[in-house]
Design a binder for these strands. Structure first.
Lengths: 217, 217
DNA sequence: GGACTTACATACGCCGCGTATGTAAGGTAA
DNA sequence: TTACCTTACATACGCGGCGTATGTAAGTCC
């Protein structure tokens, strides 16, 4: 609302009024346009799902048209990819923050996994990152950034291996399997009629499973 | 080809020629029509993916039209559901057969999991059951048959719990997490440039993880 | 054997995607 | 500053796919 009006004012006063550089306002407006499209698509994908989200609808919601979308992102899949990269970066940041607050590497790893489950319960993440993303774009491990979340988990595991807490397994492989297990747990919890009971069970089983990684339990 | 001609002959000779019952040929032809549609859809979904598969195309491939499809399955999603139920039943049978051949319950469980990974490497299963299915129809645990595969694994785990081989965890929860891990492994292996190396790593990690379930390892 | 039901095929309209084209504004060099 | 070029969009168009309404022939039941 107010934002949109402010945009128009900025748009109309751009020529000549720049303090020193003339190249910046242009770049800024492009970035803003992209950000608007990504945000609008993100909302639409989250609420209606990728297939049901009409490009005409959500571009109009952002005060733009499909022309802008095709210009910047090539096609609908390209926009989904952009949305996913943004969300993945956010998730990675959240995981890193949680991990850094833990007192031991093992606790960091467990906290990360629990946080991943919790994030996977968020409808937006579940729908876009876990359901539509893989279906439309294929295996997440093939995405450009290669899923920053996996890398975070891999790093945590490598620390645990280096300090001898867990057995010397392949860190990336472990990260993927653990991630898969947590994802499955999240889907189950999110769709359960009694999420509390189910999530308790899931966490218990999860801890039992990862105890298999420990050198001594 | 020859099949189609045979169908026509049967169709034209149906009235009156039935040995005794007049109700059977009708039911048989309906079942055949449904089976044809499911088979054609299954091929199309597997090769092009659900979204890209045109109903006109694959119904024509089955010698039918979209009219038959809507009559029997309601809509495209209904047909996908039918395809998935068929595939899930097949997978369940295969798992049960493998499980029954094992010498110990623990071996049966491990064999099942390995078999699940291997099945998940088949492009048809990966595309339809693991990627498009959840995206289009939602969480597999909410599907009508509730994923027979999960039930098979759950049963195997319950046996292990009863005989004291593994710790007394919740069998269904364990089945879900283990299934998620194997699925993730399968996706990883299938898209790896070096599947052999990757699958070895995955199996090693998998065995390490499930060792956490054992009462004594 | 005649009325009713079922199992399809045919025909139609709508919506959504992608592309080709138009246009106005910004950037650049004289 | 001005003229030219490029860029960032909007507009217009066509096509394909989905769903539905309608038609029709065959099977079923009394």
């Amino acid at each position: 609302m107010a934002e949109k009006i402010a945009d128009k004012i900025v748009t109309e006063m751009t020529p000549g009024t720049g303090v020193k550089s003339a190249a910046r306002p242009r770049k800024e407006m492009i970035a803003e346009t992209k950000a608007k499209l990504i945000a609008a698509a993100r909302r639409a994908f989250a609420h209606q799902g990728y297939a049901e989200a009409s490009m005409d609808d959500f571009t109009a919601g952002a005060g733009l048209t499909r022309g802008a979308l095709y210009h910047h992102f090539g096609d609908k899949k390209g926009l989904l990819m952009a949305v996913i990269m943004q969300m993945d970066a956010e998730m990675s940041d959240r995981l890193a923050a949680i991990s850094s607050r833990a007192e031991t590497p093992w606790q960091a790893f467990v906290d990360e996994c629990v946080a991943f489950i919790e994030m996977s319960l968020e409808p937006e993440i579940q729908r876009i990152m876990l359901l539509d993303g893989p279906a439309v774009l294929g295996d997440p491990s093939q995405w450009p950034n290669q899923s920053a979340c996996i890398r975070t988990t891999t790093a945590s595991l490598q620390k645990l291996i280096d300090q001898g807490t867990i057995r010397p397994v392949d860190a990336e492989a472990t990260a993927r399997l653990v991630n898969g297990a947590t994802l499955s747990a999240a889907l189950w919890i999110a769709n359960a009629q009694d999420p509390d009971t189910v999530s308790k069970k899931a966490v218990e089983v999860f801890l039992t499973l990862v105890s298999g990684l420990l050198v001594e339990r």
